[in-house]
Write a protein that binds this DNA or RNA. Structure first.
Length: 875
RNA sequence: GGGCGGUUAGCUCAGUUGGUAGAGCACCGGCUUUACACGCCGGCUGUCACAGGUUCGAGUCCUGUACCGCCCACCA
């Protein structure tokens, strides 16, 4: 036989009652012991299929969305493995950054106080205390590591249970040493090339986390607010006012100008004259800028430092002064009017007003100042409530503020054209996802801020000299040699200094910040591929074949990875992006913990089995948000059971003795040839679709064929295969069935790894997941049919199915058992069809329990008379 | 405001170059049939969102509209 894999190897062992129970434990343990998914790094780049696995956030909750998208990737990985590629499939854990910090704070009841000394004997209290216990930064980081390790085990258990074919020797963590080293080295190289820079500038700021955040981490949320109409008195014409609308009246003390459109006739004559701010009496100019919309509010707006990103644009482009009033925790700072350049026409009144705001957060200050404005008569009318979108840090609970601070940036704006070009070269699955990427790149409005004022993360590996006057000299950072990485500048000492010089004049200070989590995640191909420490491995896996990920992080993870690969290697990090959708609940909302509609994945696997859950997941098409559907999981479970039973039949020992599974022979019956030809076509389609990352289509078609195979083909050939028409025809059926079973099992293997492995083990050696993907040519070699013969065989199969269907219908409508004989069947059909029916007559007669079969030429129809056969069976 | 998807049976969704509308689930009826009752056989179900256009012919191609969802921008 040209395809050896359908010939049974050794003894065939089929359980009496095949069942799914226990298969997951059995086979996942076996795969582990056999190293079935071990990556062989001796293979060349062309032979390798490498996957840039997304590291799940281990501090987050496990949910069906994980199961969904990781199953998609696993089907792709298994397909390519069976196609002969050596699959590089690592697993990563995202334990970096804020989610971990927040979880550690809540879990242990601690808070990080970097000023505390390290206490090695610290043990977290048994229950989280309130208020939280302050701990040193090293202790906090230890607790982060401890908890994430626990979380990782839970994820690993889930992944093994789900049957992901990852190589567990290739795990990585985004806070692990290799990740730190890669992040720090890449940063130093960017710094050396001038692609990373530090500057003091207005920055998006989360007041609860007290850190800068990036544009990519923003999200809009609808919040109630109110327009407040405020009057500003013209400095040159007391008693004459300009009115503006604002949703943030509390920022009036930070007001540095008013602005209107250059062509707005209402304000044309007033540009570059001055007004007095209400309550505070500061003189501010009226400026013209095209971003001001004459249609909005009164047409004039207040510019504050800083109320929103438009303020930043105006402030920068109109070269205004800064009056910063909000401090990192989001409250109004103490300040003295009349000093620090905070002039006022009435400093005492300004001070009195401002004192009422000092120490308040924005929202409280807003309520307070509205009272003051109402008393002073500067509030025109009453506030008009409105729902409006407010910018939030995606993980934050309060609206962002914009604060001026010193931050690190990676140059992005000047790379946009190159990034668009790279995005066009990337193969997107589905293709329309590219638009989201291009949308994002084109909408960027600043370089990427990568520094965060947090504790648990990758440190910036640099120090700054401290001048003799005690000031930190940010302009001359002290950088280490790459060989020292990874390092922590808060404990490690720069070359040429001693530890005693830390923090003293003439000494040094470490950079206090950590990197944005995406600054590390964006290097995942480099981290997993051994970029710095294992160039041999890197040359075999990079650039990678595929990045699988969900569509919501195209703007973050996908974008930043493309950027970093471009900056570091001048090329794309992968050839393909396979984008998964979300899991929606039946109400079409994104499944989320807050809505309380999350089903735990383990409970699903318990109820429906891994293969059942995977079936549901794999039926979700690439990029498409998919409804959670337990019904589909039941269908998948049923399919798995059907596979067990169909295989039991195909591999079973039919009567008479001697015509066992070993009795194969030339495929000579038209039905057998037809089914193998159909299967060959299916294999071609499946291969093509899988190559195009359309796993869902492969599953759908394979399943459809499989049910046809069971319900029609197997039923039609049963009798012949039992030997009722001689050994040669039995052997033909036997061969076709075995070849079909083998191919079908392998087609299903990427989707249903457990049940297919189980069935494979009944009659084959080794893992099905290391077996060869079926080839259409192998199946066609069995039939050796030319095109006209194929057409005849297909027509014959078609006739057989139609006639059998008519007989079944008659029995069903007559409410008779299917075992009821059909005494007389008259088939009227065109001559050609009758010839084809004659080709398969013995199979149709046997399957339909036909007594007398009559034929006549005419338009197709079938008459069936049920009942016992009363006359001798005609030939 | 810009962009991207979607709208097909009660539900979830297929429908590859235009050629008489499909599957599963659900529902109804029947059947112990020697692989499977975790099964089998059969049945019912549609103005393919709407309006135009191209075509001998449109679920499929073009234009527009409506609604749903998402991404981005704006948000004084």
């Amino acid at each position: 036989m040209s395809d050896p894999s359908f010939s049974p190897r050794g003894a065939v062992t089929v359980p009496d009652k095949p069942a799914l129970e226990g298969l997951e434990q059995k086979w996942s343990a076996w795969w582990e012991s056999q190293s079935t998914y071990r990556f062989d790094r001796s293979r060349s780049r062309a032979e390798v299929y490498s996957i840039d696995t997304p590291p799940p956030t281990v501090s987050g909750s496990l949910h069906v969305g994980h199961v969904f998208s990781y199953t998609h990737t696993d089907t792709i990985a298994r397909f390519h493995r069976m196609r002969g590629r050596e699959v590089f499939y690592p697993m990563g854990w995202d334990d970096n950054g804020l989610p971990t910090e927040r979880r550690v704070q809540n879990y242990y009841g601690v808070r990080c106080d970097p000023s505390l000394p390290y206490d090695p004997s610290f043990v977290p209290p048994p229950t989280p205390p309130k208020p939280p216990v302050p701990v040193s930064r090293p202790t906090f980081i230890e607790l982060c590591a401890r908890l994430t390790h626990e979380d990782e085990k839970v994820f690993e258990d889930l992944w093994r249970r789900l049957g992901l074919s990852v190589d567990w020797n290739l795990t990585y963590a985004t806070i692990g040493k290799p990740a730190q080293k890669a992040s720090q080295a890449a940063f130093l190289r960017l710094l050396a090339r001038g692609e990373a820079y530090q500057t003091e500038a207005p920055t998006l700021w989360d007041v609860d986390f007290r850190t800068a955040v990036a544009q990519a981490e923003l999200e809009d949320r609808e919040r109630p607010g109110a327009y407040h109409r405020i009057r500003f008195e013209l400095a040159a014409r007391p008693g004459t006012f300009i009115e503006i609308d604002t949703t943030r009246p509390e920022l009036i003390p930070a007001c540095v100008a008013l602005v209107a459109h250059p062509d707005d006739p209402k304000y044309k004559d007033l540009f570059d004259t001055e007004v007095m701010t209400p309550l505070f009496g500061a003189r501010v100019p009226i400026k013209a800028h095209p971003l001001a919309d004459p249609e909005k509010g009164t047409g004039a707006a207040m510019i504050c430092t800083f109320g929103d990103v438009t303020d930043v644009v105006w402030w920068r482009e109109l070269q205004l002064q800064a009056r910063a009033i909000i401090v990192p925790n989001g409250t109004f700072r103490a300040l003295a009017w009349g000093r620090e350049g905070w002039e006022s026409s009435d400093p005492a009144r300004a001070q009195a007003a401002y004192d009422q705001l000092t120490g308040l957060p924005s929202e409280k200050a807003r309520a307070r100042i509205v009272d003051l404005l109402r008393e002073s008569g500067d509030l025109v009318g009453e506030p008009r409530p409105v729902m409006h979108a407010v910018k939030f840090f995606e993980k934050g609970d309060r609206p962002l503020e914009i604060l001026t601070s010193r931050q690190w940036f990676i140059r992005t704006m000047d790379k946009r054209a190159a990034l668009i070009a790279l995005g066009a070269k990337l193969q997107w699955h589905p293709p329309y996802m590219r638009a989201r990427y291009e949308n994002w790149v084109n909408g960027l409005n600043g370089d990427w801020c990568i520094s965060r004022q947090r504790f648990f993360g990758v440190a910036f590996p640099i120090w700054y000299p401290i001048r003799d006057d005690g000031a930190i000299d940010y302009g001359r950072p002290v950088v280490p040699d790459e060989s020292r990485l990874p390092l922590d500048p808060s404990t490690d000492v720069p070359d040429g200094y001693t530890a005693e010089q830390r923090g003293v004049p003439g000494g040094f200070a470490g950079d206090p910040d950590v990197m944005d989590t995406w600054a590390t995640s964006s290097l995942s191909p480099q981290i997993t591929g051994g970029w710095l420490d294992d160039p041999d491995l890197f040359s075999r896996v990079f650039p990678m074949d595929v990045r699988p990920q969900a569509h919501d992080i195209i703007r973050t993870w996908l974008f930043s990875t493309v950027l970093r690969a471009y900056l570091e290697h001048g090329r794309l990090p992968w050839a393909n992006a396979a984008i998964s959708g979300w899991v929606l609940d039946p109400d079409r909302k994104k499944m989320s913990k807050s809505k309380g509609n999350v089903v735990t994945p383990v409970a699903l696997l318990d109820e429906h089995g891994s293969d059942g859950v995977r079936y549901w997941a794999a039926s979700g098409r690439p990029g498409v948000d998919t409804a959670f559907d337990a019904g589909q999981m039941r269908v998948g479970r049923r399919l798995s059971i059907k596979l067990l039973n169909a295989a039991k039949f195909v591999l079973g020992r039919p009567r008479p003795e001697g015509l066992g599974v070993g009795a194969t022979g030339p495929v000579m019956a038209p039905l057998d040839r037809a089914v193998l030809e159909q299967l060959a076509a299916l294999v071609e389609d499946a291969t093509r679709d899988f190559e195009a990352y359309d796993y869902a289509r492969v599953l759908e078609r394979t399943e459809s064929f499989f049910w046809f195979f069971c319900d029609n083909y197997l039923e039609l050939v049963k009798s012949r295969r039992y030997g009722d028409h001689g050994e040669a025809l039995a052997a033909s059926a036997n061969t076709a069935m075995l070849a079909a079973l083998s191919a079908l099992l392998r087609l299903f293997a990427p989707f249903l790894p457990f049940v297919t492995e189980e069935v494979w083990s009944w009659w084959q050696e080794g893992s099905i997941h290391r077996s060869r993907w079926p080839e259409a040519a192998d199946l066609r070699a069995l039939t050796a049919a030319d095109a006209p013969a194929i057409a005849r065989d297909r027509a014959a199969l078609d006739m057989a199915v139609q006639v059998l269907g008519e007989i079944r219908r008659t029995k069903s409508e007559g409410k008779k058992p299917l075992k009821t004989p059909a005494a007389r069947v008259r088939v009227v059909a065109p001559r050609e069809s009758l010839d084809r029916l004659a080709d398969v007559e013995i199979d149709v007669r046997a399957a339909g329990l036909i007594g007398l079969l009559e034929t006549a030429e005419g338009d197709f129809h079938v008459d069936v008379e049920l009942g016992e056969i009363t006359q001798a069976t005609p030939s």
